[in-house]
Write a protein that binds this DNA or RNA. Sequence first.
DNA 1: CAATATAACTTGCATTATGAAAGTAATAAT
DNA 2: ATTATTACTTTCATAATGCAAGTTATATTG
Lengths: 153, 153
Amino acid sequence: MKRSDPKSHCPINFSLEAFGDTWSLLIIRDIVYFGKNTYGEFIESEERISSNILASRLAHLELKGILVKKPHATDKRKEVYFLSDKGLDLIPILLELAGWGALYDPETDAPQNWISAVKADRESMIRLIRDTVRNGGSIFSGPDSVVSKLAIT
Amino acid sequence: MKRSDPKSHCPINFSLEAFGDTWSLLIIRDIVYFGKNTYGEFIESEERISSNILASRLAHLELKGILVKKPHATDKRKEVYFLSDKGLDLIPILLELAGWGALYDPETDAPQNWISAVKADRESMIRLIRDTVRNGGSIFSGPDSVVSKLAIT
DNA sequence: CAATATAACTTGCATTATGAAAGTAATAAT
DNA sequence: ATTATTACTTTCATAATGCAAGTTATATTG
């Protein structure tokens, strides 16, 4: 799946080797934007990742220290995936990717209010998202979502 | 090489489909950080992209409107690749990827002074890089490089 | 000016990654 | 006790990648 020796120690290449495949950032997006954290939730995403690829990406992200897997508190069938601090540090990258995509996709799903809110006060938004996600919340989903805290329509 | 219909209109997915493969951002890095702009210069990069993949990625990035190809002014064998405005808008993403990689790779090649300088004044640094690259310069290479303008050691 | 070199690719083919579908083992719900 | 869920794994076909060796046009060198 992935080569073990790095192609270079260029910091951009290091990042790409850690999470720069087709699917990893979509999994991380699901956690940060939509509050997903189980295999079953990830596999429901609209991009339709296949089950074997999802399993390999989750394992890779865990190996890289970006995700942490814990048994579910009450349901022993479930595993719950969280972002480590290293994973939470990907939030600025997600925001930039979303900003570029929202700007150039004429059919984007991104709410313009949200994109504007991020541009208007980036640093404090990063802090708010980080704290929210660390506590199990997300940007768009759940009662403690970032958008509900900020009352973004 | 790439599917033509988008998997979704999630802005993050849109970005990943445009430049989110293993090599595209390394080509763009070569332009922005090192002032490369020909096939022969890209193929010399330390990550050792193969010639057919380089050709396919250049074609894809041109198709997506991120790169623009022009014949070389004096040498008719050469083609010169530039970033369009859409491509220049990827600079913030490169900076974030580099910041994360520099933070987490203990053997990173990234100069700490540079990483700190970007963190210290991100917005004006983005403007300076953008203007420099638009005029054919780069962050690290050439007489008009960003680091020489700023006298970063 | 003829021969060689360079630049930007392309082609062929082996290897590897991806993706769809079906299967499995453990636990939970009925 | 039976059925349903959950998180994977396995199998196999297809597609992407990567290496090596062309190819064509233009430039350089003796």
